[in-house]
Amino acid sequence: MFHELTDNDIKRRRKRIVVTACLVAALALAAFAVYSVVQESAKTQGAVALRDSILASAKQCCAIEGSYPSSLEHLEESYGLTINHDDYVITYECFANNIMPSVVVTPR
């Protein structure tokens, strides 16, 4: 049996559609915001882990060779350190062979 829609029924349906569309848009924006925060946190944690691995390789080099490496390239070539230079900017400063180098890792 066919039931004819009244003007009030049509208005209610339109209102539901608009409310539903607004809720979906709000959920999409919230999901995007959460994704951005999580991705930024992952980059920061990656930078901390990379700095720790650089310092660990420098300590290993000092234990084996008797002095800290003068460059980051030495650690990459001789000790198997792998660095993603596209994602991180690394400042490696070695003051003297017997002083631990200063390492700063910044995500791009």
Rank of each mutant, 00 (worst) to 15 (best):
V48P: 06
V38W: 08
N97P: 14
R16A: 10
S78C: 04
L50G: 00
E65S: 11
L27D: 01
R51M: 06
A56N: 09
S71A: 09
L55P: 00
A31M: 12
R12A: 13
V24A: 15
L50V: 03
K43V: 01
D86T: 12
L72H: 03
D87G: 04
M100T: 05
D86Y: 10
S57W: 02
V103W: 08
E73R: 04
T20H: 07
Q39A: 11
N98P: 01
S67Y: 14
H3W: 04
H74R: 11
V37K: 04
D52E: 14
F95I: 09
D7A: 13
T44F: 08
G80N: 08
F32S: 09
A49Q: 11
S53F: 01
H74E: 14
N84Q: 05
L75M: 07
G66S: 07
L5H: 11
K15M: 13
R16L: 12
E40M: 12
E4S: 14
K59P: 00
C94T: 10
V104G: 00
S71C: 04
E65A: 15
D86C: 07
V104D: 01
T82L: 08
T82Q: 11
A21Q: 09
T6D: 03
E65W: 06
V105N: 00
R108Y: 07
T44D: 09
H3Q: 09
K43R: 15
D87K: 11
V104K: 00
D52I: 02
V105A: 02
R108G: 03
S78M: 03
A49K: 08
I10T: 13
S36V: 00
Y92L: 06
E77L: 10
D87S: 12
C62R: 14
V103Y: 10
P101C: 10
L29A: 04
E76Q: 10
L55T: 02
I17Y: 12
L81C: 07
Q45M: 11
G80T: 04
K15Y: 13
I64P: 01
D52N: 12
L50F: 02
